[in-house]
Amino acid sequence: MGSTLVQRRLSSALAIMTFAVLLTGCGTWWHGDHQSVTIFTTPPDAAVVVDERVHLLAPGTVSLNRKGNHHAVATKDGYESAVMTLSRTWSWWLLGDVFGCLIVFSPFCIMHDIDEGGYYTFDDTIYITLDRKSAAWAPVK
């Protein structure tokens, strides 16, 4: 009976360690280093350029690399251009790394997600508002 209790405890400890190892680097493994983000504009149908490379008509979806922030410019005839920085924030996946690394104590797991972008996330939807151009005042001749 005593050896059965020891076996259960060893099995439980092994299961916890396996779970912790699986959590390390989980941000990148589970949700990847890119994220699909949908951009909406007011008014709709504005042309949006992200990072001077990706062109889309809003509403539209773009895949953003989580390794850094991005820059979007929205334009439409009759409206002022709108510029927006698409900033990443901390992802909740970092909790898996912290928990896993506290048990396994491997700084590699944290560094992997930081380097690959798994620690970060963007809002799933981005809203950009363009202001209507004011009519230029011209003197009457």
Rank of each mutant, 00 (worst) to 15 (best):
95 L>G: 07
42 T>Q: 11
98 V>T: 07
12 S>F: 15
134 S>I: 13
76 K>N: 02
58 A>M: 00
47 A>M: 12
64 L>H: 00
43 P>I: 02
70 H>K: 03
80 E>N: 14
90 W>F: 11
41 T>K: 02
93 W>D: 02
3 S>D: 10
33 D>K: 08
103 I>G: 00
103 I>D: 00
110 I>E: 00
18 T>K: 07
30 W>E: 06
74 A>H: 08
47 A>W: 09
80 E>K: 14
60 G>S: 04
75 T>S: 12
62 V>G: 00
1 M>P: 10
38 T>I: 05
25 G>H: 02
55 H>V: 13
138 A>L: 12
76 K>S: 06
10 L>E: 10
45 D>W: 04
35 Q>P: 03
48 V>S: 06
95 L>R: 01
6 V>I: 13
49 V>P: 03
113 D>H: 05
75 T>N: 08
111 M>F: 15
72 A>T: 06
100 G>M: 09
81 S>D: 12
123 D>H: 13
42 T>P: 00
112 H>K: 13
42 T>L: 09
86 L>N: 07
141 K>W: 14
95 L>C: 06
41 T>D: 01
120 Y>D: 04
15 A>Q: 07
85 T>M: 13
10 L>P: 05
130 L>T: 04
56 L>I: 08
85 T>E: 15
35 Q>G: 06
31 H>F: 00
72 A>G: 06
113 D>L: 03
71 H>L: 12
139 P>I: 09
9 R>I: 15
75 T>G: 04
10 L>N: 15
94 L>S: 12
51 D>C: 05
116 E>Y: 10
92 W>Q: 09
18 T>Q: 06
22 L>D: 03
135 A>N: 09
16 I>T: 10
55 H>Y: 14
31 H>P: 01
84 M>T: 12
84 M>Y: 03
85 T>F: 10
108 F>R: 02
11 S>P: 06
53 R>P: 00
124 D>G: 15
134 S>A: 15
122 F>W: 01
64 L>T: 03
30 W>C: 14
113 D>Y: 03
11 S>K: 10
37 V>D: 06
40 F>P: 01
44 P>F: 08
53 R>L: 08
129 T>N: 14
8 R>C: 13
134 S>R: 15
22 L>V: 13
118 G>A: 01
130 L>W: 01
54 V>D: 10
37 V>H: 02
12 S>C: 13
120 Y>T: 09
115 D>R: 14
137 W>A: 14
39 I>N: 06
33 D>H: 10
5 L>V: 09
105 F>T: 11
120 Y>R: 07
99 F>V: 15
2 G>I: 15
123 D>W: 04
137 W>T: 14
43 P>A: 03
84 M>A: 08
60 G>R: 02
100 G>F: 09
57 L>F: 04
24 T>N: 12
4 T>M: 14
99 F>M: 12
99 F>P: 01
84 M>W: 06
82 A>C: 05
113 D>F: 05
32 G>T: 04
4 T>S: 13
64 L>F: 03
140 V>L: 14
80 E>S: 11
28 T>V: 07
60 G>N: 04
16 I>D: 04
4 T>C: 11
141 K>D: 14
127 Y>Q: 14
113 D>N: 09
21 V>W: 11
114 I>R: 09
67 K>V: 12
106 S>E: 04
77 D>V: 11
30 W>A: 15
104 V>G: 02
